[in-house]
Amino acid sequence: MSETLQQLAFYTDAAMIVFAALMVVTLRNIFHCALFLALGFFGIAGIFVMLHAEFLAGVQVMIYVGAIAVLVLFAIMLTRGVTGQDMKQTNKQSPVAGAIALLFVVFLLKLMAGARFATSTVAPVKDSTAFLGQLLVTRYVLPFEVASIVLLMAMVGALLLAKEKEDE
C-alpha cells in the first residue's frame, strides 16, 4: 500500500476514534454513549493493525469490543432507571473542569511542539505474534505472571462482593 493510502487510512481511523470519543462524553442517552465507546475501541484496533501489531488488534477487538463494551451495555440494560432517559453529562463544576482541561491541552501542545518523535529504522517483525508469545514466556515472564495474579485477585474480590450474605 502506498504512503498516501496509508495516511488516508490513518486519518480516517483517527477521525472516527475522536468522533466516537466525543460522542461518548456528550450524548445524553447513556446507551448510545456505550455504543460509541465500542466504536472507539474498534477504531483503536485499526491503529494496531497499521502498526503491524495484528495480535494486539485481535485481542483489542475480542476483549474491549466483545467483552468490556458488552458488559457495559449489559449493565445499562439491567438498570431500568437509566435506560432510555436523557441524562445531563455535565454538572455545575463544568466551567472549572473545562478551564483546567484547556490548560492541560495547552500544556500538551507545548510539550508536543518541542518533542522529537523517534522512529526506528528497523523493519517491522514479520510475524509479531510468535515473537510476542516467545518474549512473554521468556524475558517478560515475571510481569506476565504478576499480571495474572492481579487479575485472579480481582476475580476473587469480585466474587466476594457479589456473594450473598448468609447470616443477615
Binding site: 495484528e54 475480542m62 466483545g66 449489559f74 440494560m77
Partner: peptide, 24 residues
Amino acid sequence: LNIGILYIAAISSMAVIGIIMAGW
C-alpha cells in the same frame, strides 16, 4: 492472516453487540 483463528474469535464476538442493540 497470521492471526487467523484469533481474528475469527475477535470478529465473531462483535455480533453480541448487534443482538443487544436489536433488543434494546
